[in-house]
Each structure stands twice: as structure tokens, then as C-alpha cells.
Design a protein around this nucleic acid. Structure first.
Lengths: 123, 123
DNA sequence: TATTATATTTAGCCTATGCTAACATGTCAA
DNA sequence: TTGACATGTTAGCATAGGCTAAATATAATA
């Protein structure tokens, strides 16, 4: 079944953390998201079941190719929407918070339209 | 506690239907939202508990003042966001679908910025 | 190596919010 | 007035996704 906001947030977090440190562990995700370790543990199991997270390696969390594609997709929405809102005059913190929720609910079509619009304005 | 997406959708639906017909009943809401009658029945009880729906009158659903303020707030987000997306080149159906989800997640600050931007562009 | 500290998992609770099945209450027409 | 259809409610199930407490694993240090 399609990923919900929750799953997308976990993927995005693993992706972001993996760009900051060599190895990402469950506890890092828990700290970053302010969730309990059991919540993260279960979520990681679900992502594994969905084939978005690798099963093998010790305890390090590694996205599969499919997982990384999805994570990047969400993360792009995050950065583009944040920039958009800042361009509209919203303060950085609010812009990021809104982007972080909306990124899960905007369709491809609408997101593409938003991106095109931003390109045009930045020419 | 703050209203979730679900509660906001019920309020908005009651508001929209009340502009189309004299009396709105649970079954009208169920038909409109494609939800079962028990789901609507329970949701109406919760809205009443929250003071957003009047308790008295027979079976007609009437928003309280607080409920109407919230409903209008969401509905405005719906219409403004839909128009925004259409202006960006998104087809009407997709624009409305996206607006219908995003309306629950956009902050006041960001929504106001979006509105200001649209005013400017329509001058 | 043995002990302690850190990570992870298991078990099970809770809330929100959809559902069906079954029951209750109208309301209206024969 | 009564039977039938519409409407509403009660009871209880399911899923998603947080949580704590407690048990395991794993790692690091005395």
C-alpha cells in the first residue's frame, strides 16, 4: 500500500542523516524525530517489509534503491516548498514547518507546476 | 484538542451543504463524503462535544458560531488554494484535490503569504 | 573477561477514524 | 393504524502509528 506521511518522514530522515554521517542507526532517527526507540524500531521493520530499507547489514540503516528514490522525492518537495514559502515572505522556520507537512500531500502535477512557476520567477 | 483533518472535513462539508439546501442531515454528509452513516453519526457527536455543532434542534445539523468560523476558514483555504493551483496551470480536478488535502496543513502565516501573492498577481 | 552502558526489540496500551451488523426511531402512504 | 423505507445510533472490529515497561543484544571499558 502507498506510504503514509509517517513512512515518508522516516525515509526522509534516514536520507538526510545519511548525508551528515557515515552510519545511521535507529537511535539517531529516534533522536532526530523525537520519537521513542520502539516506535522507530517498528517503523524500520515496516520499511523493510516494503522493500525500502535494506535487511542485511548489522544495525546500520541503509535505504534500498526504491527507498532512496522516494526519500529524494520527498526531500526535493521539502526544499522546493520551503524556498517557495520563503520567497513569499514567510519566515524560515514557519516555511520549513509548512513544507514538512505539505510535502506529503501535494501531487506530482501540482508540485511540477509549482516548480515551473519558481523557475520562471527566478529567471 | 485541536481539530484534525477529519473534523475539519466534516465542518467544511456541513458548511458547503448548508449553502445548498435548507437543512443538512447526517445522511447528506455521509452521501457527500462517501462515508458510512455510523462514521458520520459518531463524528457529529464529537463535533457537538467540541462545541462546534449545535445540540438542540431535531436532526438538522447546525454549526455553532465557533464551528462556522472554523468551517469558513477551511473553506477559504480550499477555494484560494484551488485557484492558486489552477493559476499555475494545474487542471481543475487535481487542483481541487490537492487543495482539499493541503487546506488542513498550511499555517496561517503561510496561507496569508499565499493570499497576498495572489492579490499582487491579479492586479 | 566481566561489568556496565547503549541499542534494539517485544509486548501490549492508547487514540483517531474508518467500517459492518444490528437495533431503534421516524415518517409517510396504503 | 400499520407496514415499509429512511434515518440515526449502538456495539464492536480494523488499521495506523504514537507510547511505556521490560527483555535482549551489542559494545565499550575497568
Amino acid at each position: 500500500m502507498a506510504l503514509q506521511e509517517s513512512g515518508e518522514m522516516y525515509l526522509e530522515t534516514i536520507y538526510v542523516l545519511s548525508q551528515q554521517k557515515a552510519a545511521v542507526r535507529s537511535v539517531d532517527v529516534a533522536d532526530y524525530m523525537n520519537f521513542s526507540k520502539p516506535s522507530v524500531s517498528r517503523a524500520m521493520g515496516l520499511l523493510r517489509d516494503e522493500g525500502l530499507l535494506k535487511k542485511d547489514t548489522g544495525n546500520d540503516l541503509k535505504l534500498t534503491e526504491a527507498g532512496e528514490i522516494l526519500a529524494k522525492r520527498i526531500y526535493e518537495r521539502h526544499t522546493v516548498l520551503t524556498t517557495l514559502f520563503i520567497n513569499l515572505g514567510v519566515d524560515e522556520e514557519t516555511a520549513a514547518e509548512d513544507a514538512c507537512r505539505i510535502e506529503h500531500y501535494i501531487s506530482d502535477k501540482t508540485f511540477d507546476a509549482v516548480k515551473r512557476h519558481m523557475m520562471k520567477c527566478n529567471k
